[in-house]
Amino acid sequence: MREIKADIITERIAELCVAANCVLPCDIKSRIEDARSKEPWHTAQGILDKIIENYGIAERDNVPICQDTGVCCVFLKIGQEVHIDGDLRAAVDEGVRRGYGEGYLRKSVVKDPLRRVNTGDNTPAMLYTEIVPGDKIELTVAPKGFGSENMSKLAMLKPSDGIEGVKAFILQTVKDAGPNPCPPIVVGVGIGGTFDKAAYLAKKALMRSTDVRNSDEFYAELEAEMLEKINSLGIGPQGLGGRTTALAVNIEWMPTHIAGLPVAVNINCHVTRHRTLVI
């Protein structure tokens, strides 16, 4: 049994909150720069240039790429041989509180969805934990903006809807979102499981590097096909027309019930942020 102090988790979360908000992951930068080189539409080229300039400024000056520094999604993969010394939930929230306070990040969380008073420190984190083999903890911090979150959807399709039904639902979700989620977007798709697991898979799909395709060739092909279809819609950067509507489609799947075909689409903007480290 390895012991990890909760204080260490707090410190690391605080660091990850700032880094994730100010420095765009390398794979997303490559996707955007690659898209710029292939973009034929003049307006779209200009917008992509500004987007590239923007994340350059953010990284250089250590300021947030986007003012929506998000609700803080924290994914923990906890090795089953780890004992955490202290209150894990409190440690994570303290990390978010520190990161968002000391990092001059925006506090965008309301305590209650209907009475809507800001918590003032961006807590609580949206915490996802998974128990895995081993004696380490993997921390991922993913600030999630709500311009794109609001454009996400879930459908409980019928098995007879099949793959064509899934494709149509993904495409319609992106079409309906149009300019709202700040395209070019990254599309996270969760297929299977239950109502809630499909949504979780879609969020988890957004944590995967866009350099990595699904390990199952069938789903890797579906990812490629959907990216091509989405980039034929013409929505373009910021919805003003162009080829570059999406940077990547990441799909995660799991077993499901004989009666069901849940599919969830979680949309992320071009500021697709996540940072991971292992303790």
């Binding site: 923007n54 300019p179 700040c182 071009h270």
Partner: peptide
């Protein structure tokens, strides 16, 4: 702002004279 507007907003813009501009979403540092 950024993104679509509803028909009631557009009607009011036509009636009174107003413009809806978009700035680049996600380019907050710039």
């Amino acid at each position: 702002g950024k993104g679509k507007r509803g028909s009631e907003v557009i009607s009011a813009m036509k009636e009174y004279g107003a413009v809806y501009f978009a700035a680049i979403g996600g380019a907050g540092a710039l």
